[in-house]
Design a protein around this nucleic acid. Structure first.
Length: 587
RNA sequence: GGAGCCGUAGUGCAGUCGGCUUAACACGCCUGCCUGUCACGCAGGAGAUCGCGGGUUCGAGCCCCGUCGGCUCCGCCA
């Protein structure tokens, strides 16, 4: 390869040297007599100079250069004249006087400017993603992604892990997200499924004795999208043998601290705090609490059981909860603002949002009249309320209370500036999840994590008597209210695995049909094992301050799962369908 | 499946309580000028079926209905 210097690496050390540069015309400043061009490549920008006094023969060619033309130039690196340096540019002390110019390719005017700070409509960016990816901000994200993945691989390699690939064409299994299906040509009417995660394969690698496995791997879930959810996304998938939850938590704290130091260049304090699921739900109304601020939930259920406010009393007496938030200094919040918060909690099923302004001598609230002054004092004491505070209440079944107040505390924190740019990152482990949760849709218990999660040892007996009470050896890592990853110790006993399938109302016939290979494997000397998986895209989003994972993915899809560049998905030819034995039914 | 927001020159936007301009402004683009700029500057110019379809009206970028696309959220996501 020819000798080239990267644009961003033309420093004062090269002054006096002849260099060859290649890149794109980022911006040109044509003064008639002298032309300045900011030349851009992956490494950055450098100013190159075309001066007719020094390179008369190429000056006319230089005048024809336009944005995004691809050029190769040779010239001498010089110190910039006094007063003409640019402190905003790493290469701002120098410039390159060009004596040779080769136009490698011209370019049409792009649909949006590469050299622009302005926000461009995202659908246009996605249609021309190859241009969008040229923008320095996006290049920084993609380079950052590489650095993080490289650091993860190095760390795990140093810890004795093997990266082992697992199949993408695999089998659809019940439970969990909707699968992406791939029709089989050879076995018509049968389908592969793209993996939601390599869960079963990594467990089988433990059975096979590989002890420490990891993979940076694509996963596929055919569910509706969000800012932090794409149909295909990347996991850092880890599994180890002979471990307890604390081993995996220690390992991953070490991994994150290592990446922090190597890529972000600063120390991270470990270990991270740990909260049980029950405590997280009680105090924050969420299994992924944002700990950057307080505003914890207060429980008033017992206090209002026999109060005169029927809405509260009825809910409290019938198994529901009455909980609330104390918004410190919230007296400045307007009625209109409270209306908007009421609307907000309505999204989560709350019928209303009761409020009390705490003033010096009284409680200003439409519901104050239903409470005796003793009851109001008790409420204030419970909430540690002082004059100037605003109490907000939701009364409903526990699930709705948690969802409404859990989200409300975050919303209020955002609106009132409790969360801001300077807020310190808060990592937290959530542990001891319930094994199962009740699915109203399916009218049965479903696995909260997945059906291969090991119950806590002391709860094994409950599996058959009271499965809903069983806790699992499962743990999630949460950063600033977003779930980064989760894992568990797996079941390594065939008997326990069968009991869990029973609790899930998966018949032994179905279990054998769908998971026979796993049950078989558990009978051949399976070591105790467990692991964790991180959403790489989410990690990158949070660490880079991006507001969606699309910003840290090279080629993401829209909310309707379209790729606007390739226009996938798209119809296929009738021959292709015929080969697969597929008939498309149109609506 | 549901809720909300958005859609106006290549780009970002103004106009949105119906009738005031030729649908404004900035960037970009084109032409000319300009030898120290760095979001260069100056002068001129081209560029818009106001996402699409229907309706109301004497008259619709603006109001109504539908539809398409994008985004955010609920449901969903072990």
């Amino acid at each position: 390869m020819q000798e080239r210097t990267n644009c961003g690496e033309v420093t004062t050390q090269l002054i006096g040297k002849k260099v060859t540069l290649t890149g794109w015309v980022h911006r040109r400043r044509d003064h008639g007599g002298v032309i300045f061009i900011d030349l851009r490549d992956r490494s950055g920008l450098v100013q190159i100079v075309f001066n007719p006094d020094e390179a008369k023969d190429i000056f006319a060619d230089a005048e024809r250069l336009r944005s995004e033309y691809v050029i190769k130039v040779k010239g001498e690196v010089r110190q910039r004249p006094e007063g003409a340096t640019n402190p905003n540019l790493p290469t701002g002390e120098v410039e390159v006087y060009i004596t040779e110019l080769t136009l490698l390719n011209s370019a049409q005017t792009p649909p949006f400017a590469i050299a622009d700070y302005r926000e461009v409509d995202e659908s246009l960016r996605l249609k021309y993603r190859y241009l969008d990816l040229r923008r320095p901000e996006m290049q920084a994200n993609i380079i950052f992604r590489h650095q993080v993945v490289k650091a993860v691989r190095d760390y795990l390699d140093n810890q004795g892990f093997l990266e082992i690939e697992t199949p993408f064409l695999t089998r659809s299994t019940p439970e969990g997200a909707r699968d992406y299906l791939v029709p089989s040509r050879i076995h018509q009417g049968s389908f592969y499924a793209l993996p939601q995660s390599p869960q079963l394969f990594k467990q089988l690698l433990m059975v096979a004795g590989y002890e420490k496995y990891f993979q940076v791997v694509k996963c596929f879930r055919d569910e509706d999208l969000r800012a932090d959810r794409q149909p295909e996304f990347t996991q850092i998938d880890i599994e180890l043998s002979f471990v307890e939850p604390s081993d995996i938590q220690d390992l991953t704290e070490g991994m994150i601290a290592y990446v922090y130091q190597r890529v972000l260049g600063h120390q991270l304090v470990t270990p991270f705090p740990r909260l049980t699921w029950t405590e997280a739900m009680n105090r924050f109304g969420s299994d992924r609490p944002d700990l950057r601020f307080g505003l914890e939930l207060q429980d008033f259920t017992d206090l209002v059981k026999s109060c005169g406010f029927k809405v509260f009393a009825a809910v409290a007496q019938s198994g529901g909860q009455v909980k609330g938030l104390n918004v410190k200094g919230g007296s400045s919040i307007s009625r209109r603002e409270i209306d908007s918060l009421t609307e907000f909690v309505g999204q989560f099923g709350a019928k209303g949002l009761a409020w009390m302004f705490i003033e010096q001598d009284e409680v200003r609230s439409p519901i104050a009249k239903f409470f005796s002054s003793e009851e109001l004092e008790q409420i204030k004491a419970q909430a540690q309320a002082e004059p100037g505070d605003l109490l907000l209440f939701v009364a409903a079944k526990p699930r709705v209370v948690a969802a409404a107040l859990g989200n409300l505390r975050v919303e209020i924190a955002k609106r009132t500036g409790l969360i801001n740019e300077n807020s310190e990152d808060k990592y937290v482990w959530i542990t001891d999840f319930p094994m199962f949760e009740y699915s109203e849709e399916e009218n049965r218990l479903v696995a909260m994590h997945h059906p291969f999660t090991s119950p806590c040892d002391e709860d094994l007996a409950l599996l058959q008597t009271d499965p809903a009470a069983v806790k699992a050896k499962a743990y999630d890592l949460v950063l600033n209210g977003i779930e980064l990853g989760g894992g568990s110790i797996r079941i390594h006993s065939r008997k326990v695995q069968e009991q869990v399938f029973q609790a899930l109302k998966i018949s032994s016939d179905e279990a054998m049909d769908k998971f026979g290979f796993l049950l078989d494997a558990l009978g051949y000397g399976t070591p105790p094992h467990g692991g964790i998986a991180f959403g790489l895209d989410r990690l990158l989003m949070l660490w880079s301050g991006a507001d969606s994972i699309r910003q840290v993915m090279a080629f993401p899809k829209t909310q309707s799962a379209m790729d606007l560049m390739t226009e996938a998905p798209a119809p296929v030819s009738s021959q292709q369908l015929a080969e697969l034995g597929i008939v498309v039914r149109t609506k």
